[in-house]
Design a protein around this nucleic acid. Structure first.
Length: 831
RNA sequence: GCUGGAGUGGCGGAACUGGCAGACGCACGAGACUCAAAAUCUCGCGCUGCGUAAGCAGCGUGGGGGUUCAACUCCCCCCUCCAGCACCA
């Protein structure tokens, strides 16, 4: 086998062979331990990119390792096939989204297969087929039944030039992404929402089960949910005869309240205008504040503006009347839409009150030290109360508790929990998504489609114009229907669902992708769940990974599953960059995986991607570094090729064959092999620093290479060389599976490595016999001594002190202390 | 602004529990093979100073301080970069 390494030939051969052997088919088998490896499903954009390669190679290494460890491994793949790009392609090139999507899937499937990832392709699914999305609709109906899906008027971003709704991500600094001169405006539209806020507390609580999730992700989710404890306080508003409800987390500062601020969109504003003595003027001013509030949603640090309504509200704690203002920075959608202004202890209030000349009263002082007479910024920390009536002298913590209790007792307020997370708006005025299964009947109102009538099929013939109207509205045969309740003429909902719905539960469906009688098969889910390892980009830390958790909790509540969290362990990989930034077509810096495979082969591409950096870090693609991976594999191929004829004929040595008669060279080779095995095995279980695993394999190859002379001279028996080489191939097969199987077969094996047990390391063989111990004098390295691995502390000490250099440095000085750390180092302290 | 993460040779990175900083690879330099090139192989490669040399000494993990016999690692302060959220009261 003196041929040059030809990855194209080898890879094609093995992909075919694996396929024939059904090597990656996962079948439920209660007798075997299962392992579910899941990677985030790709959007079929038309081309695989390096981020995908990284994601899938990571999962593949783990899947292959678990197979070899004897697990029954489920490793599926599918397509997140609904989404806006398909629709844009339709508008631009006149191709139907279905055709565009499936031809992209075709291309990307070929690309994926070229990489040789260990998927069970029988389970492949696309979310855009009725067999899948009907269950989106079913989940929607279940939520509707439980009041978890509801309809509400809501503000959306709208570009007047595009005539269309913009997603939040499509608005940059308040302007449309396509028309940088056109500010997005807000429109009120009826939208469907899922009540994720009802699950806020459980989403937080159940994080305790997510011990194997990165802290980073949990923290981001925590911030996103944004729980805060606070107090509602009713300020009497005599002019309207109804109170203004204020929300605050700092009721301890309320004696310093010098005004009340209302969000300009607050419904009470209309009543204030109606009751005002200068209605006209107030209306105009209120409009101005509102306009600025809209801008403030996009502009950072927009100047604070407001208007005094002329009304006064009464602070129930001290009976004082304070002016009621509208202010552009108060958010309607958080708390009660009304806040109290405490300029001395809130920076925003401070800025506003300074600008408008409102009084500033200090009511909190630090526990130690004091505050200046004239504040130049708000003092926002907790402290001790002053000038606060009966509460003076309490700490902030004590005051918050007692003042809230008092408000409840006297009936002018109550403690409350607020969340920042908002309900999930799922309506999209688009075509390429799941139709929302709702019918509007003049007689019956909002009526859900009956379960038996699912799926509501997305009609194939639709004109896509991009006008911003829901395309389904233009299809009379779709819109016109009968009311499921009264049978009368009715209209269908024409919006479709957010595609995050599709990905919120797809991984359940993999366990039985073809089941037609229900969304998931309970038995299959019971066997395969939870997902043991989920792998994907950090970009999904919040949205997808919260929606997915939310769906699981709803599924738990409707009795589909019996656990709160579907994913036991999460890994978030870093990005693959080029020239310091993400690869993108517009930047023209895309490295095409398929081209790379054609140039170097899939094994090289995969090995390089794993070797370049630890998987959680971003890394920059390097044309020259991939050559290193290629060189390494070529070297392995050449090296193995040199010996294969001889090794094929001998049996593999095993440590059971007695290790006493090993030569020094044999021990050296086996030591390196077993040290590498030890490292890789430990790493696969926990850390996943695949870059160091590959580095260790390179060291092993270097060692085999260096020992070539010893092999020739017969100081290393072929059986032992074979054993070392086979360990190497087993490890290599995690990252470069094709070349590993090729050489494995050449060594005389008829089953691929995936069906071979993972080699156990022998700690005795891995142990060093002799150690080189560094000797420091006053912490500086001065000498090294070689000692047997088990040398007693005293022996090491004596040897260290006997070193010429040590003696020279200690000469004429006093040895204060000798620290001997067995197996590590000696440090001699002299004075 | 808040929250989280990171900062180590020319570059990617290693050092897992406080114990030899720079494993492994890339780039680079020298040599071998070759008519030549590619490929391959061998050697060198943190910085500075001294020395013809083997070598010797000092400095060195973003900066400053501290704890320790010993700090990339622990503590305090500061700087820079990246990410997420962003007037959430």
């Amino acid at each position: 086998m003196e041929l040059a390494y030809n990855p194209q030939e080898i890879e094609q051969k093995w992909q075919k062979r694996w396929d024939e052997l059904k090597l990656f088919d996962a079948n439920e088998d209660p007798a075997r331990k299962k392992y579910y490896v899941l990677e985030m499903l790709p959007y079929p954009s038309g081309a695989l990119h390096m981020g995908h390669v990284r994601n899938y190679t990571l999962g593949d290494a783990l899947a292959r390792y678990m197979w070899m460890k004897g697990y029954n491994v489920l490793h599926p793949i599918g397509w997140d096939a609904f989404g806006l790009p398909a629709e844009n392609a339709a508008i631009k090139h006149g191709r139907h989204p279905t055709e565009w999507t499936f031809s992209n899937i075709e291309v990307m499937r070929t690309q994926l297969k070229r990489l040789g990832v260990s998927y069970d392709w029988r389970r492949e699914m696309a979310t855009c087929v009725p067999e899948y999305y009907r269950w989106n609709q079913w989940f929607f109906l279940k939520m509707f039944e439980r009041g978890l899906a509801y309809r509400k008027k809501s503000r959306v971003n709208w570009c007047p030039k595009c005539e269309t709704v913009l997603a939040n991500e499509q608005v940059a600094n308040g302007f449309c992404w396509r028309h940088e001169d056109t500010p997005a405006i807000e429109r009120e539209l009826d939208q469907w929402f899922l009540k994720i806020t009802a699950y806020a507390e459980r989403l937080l609580d159940d994080m305790q089960h997510l011990v194997r999730w990165p802290d980073r992700v949990l923290t981001m989710q925590q911030n996103w949910i944004g729980k805060s404890l606070g107090t509602f306080v009713d300020f009497r508003l005599d002019a309207l005869g109804e109170p203004l409800q204020v929300f605050t987390t700092r009721v301890d500062t309320i004696f310093g309240c010098t005004a009340v601020f209302i969000a300009p969109e607050h419904p009470i504003v209309e009543k204030l205008i109606a009751n005002s003595q200068s209605s006209e003027n107030l209306r105009a001013e209120a409009e101005r504040v509102k306009a600025s509030a809209v801008r403030a949603r996009f502009e950072v640090n927009l100047e604070k503006v407001g208007i005094d309504t002329g009304f006064k509200a009464r602070n129930p704690y001290n009976g004082q009347f304070v002016p009621v203002w509208l202010a552009n920075f108060v958010l309607m959608e958080y708390g009660s839409g009304v806040v109290m202004a405490v300029p001395a202890h809130d920076q925003r209030d401070f800025e506003f009150c300074t600008a408008y000349g409102l009084p500033i009263t200090t009511v909190i002082v630090p526990l130690e030290g004091s505050l200046p007479e004239m504040l130049d910024a708000a003092y926002v920390d907790y402290g001790r109360l002053v000038e606060s009536g009966a509460y003076t002298g309490l700490t902030s913590e004590q005051a918050i508790e007692r003042m809230t209790r008092d408000a409840e007792a006297k009936g002018f307020g109550k403690g409350t929990v607020q969340y920042r997370i908002k309900d999930w708006g799922i309506s999209r005025q688009r075509y390429w998504g799941t139709p929302i299964p709702i019918v509007y009947c003049d007689a019956c109102g909002i009526v859900p489609v009956a379960e038996k009538d699912l799926p509501v099929i997305l009609p194939p013939d639709v004109k896509l114009t991009g006008t911003g109207q829901s395309p389904l509205g233009e299809v009379p045969e779709f819109v016109q229907t009968k009311c499921p309740r009264c049978g009368g003429a009715a209209r269908r909902e024409t919006d479709t669902m957010d595609t995050f719905i599709d990905s919120a539960w797809y991984f359940y469906r993999y366990t039985d992708p073809k089941i037609a009688s229900s969304a998931i098969d309970g038995k299959a889910v019971k066997y395969w769940f939870p997902v043991d390892q989920y792998i994907g980009g950090i970009t999904h830390a919040i949205l997808h990974l919260i929606y997915m958790r939310f769906f699981s909790k709803v599924m738990q509540d409707i009795g589909l599953v019996d656990f709160p969290e579907p994913v036991a362990r999460l890994f978030t990989q870093g990005m693959v960059l080029k020239g310091g930034t993400a690869m993108s077509k517009s930047k023209g810096n895309v490295v095409d995986p398929t081209e790379m495979c054609a140039q170097y082969g899939a094994d090289t591409v995969r090995l390089y991607v794993m070797f370049a950096a630890p998987p959680e870090k971003d890394f920059d693609w390097s044309e020259s570094a991939i050559e290193g991976a290629w060189r390494f594999l070529s070297r392995v191929y050449r090296l193995a090729g040199k010996y294969i004829e001889r090794l094929r004929k001998v049996n593999t040595w095993s440590s059971k064959d007695s290790s006493s008669s090993l030569t020094a060279e044999e021990r050296r080779l086996l030591r390196k092999a077993h040290q590498t095995l030890r490292h890789v095995t430990a790493d696969m279980e926990e850390r996943w620093h695949y870059n160091t695993d590959i580095a260790m394999m390179m060291e092993l190859v270097n060692e085999i290479s260096e020992l070539e002379g010893a092999v020739v001279e017969g100081k290393i028996r072929p059986e032992i060389l074979k054993a070392s080489l086979e360990s190497l191939l087993a490890m290599l097969s995690l990252f470069a599976p094709h070349i590993a199987d090729e050489l494995w077969e050449a060594l005389g094996h008829d089953q691929p490595l995936l069906r071979t047990p993972w080699p156990a390391y022998d700690s005795e063989l891995a142990a060093e016999e002799e150690l080189e111990i560094p000797v420091q004098v006053n912490g500086k390295l001065r000498a090294r001594v070689r000692v047997p691995a088990g040398a007693a502390e005293e022996v090491i000490r004596r040897r260290a002190l006997a070193e010429d250099k040590v003696a020279a440095l200690a000469n004429g000085k006093q040895i204060v202390k000798v620290i001997v750390v067995p197996k590590k180092l000696v440090n001699i302290v002299v004075k």
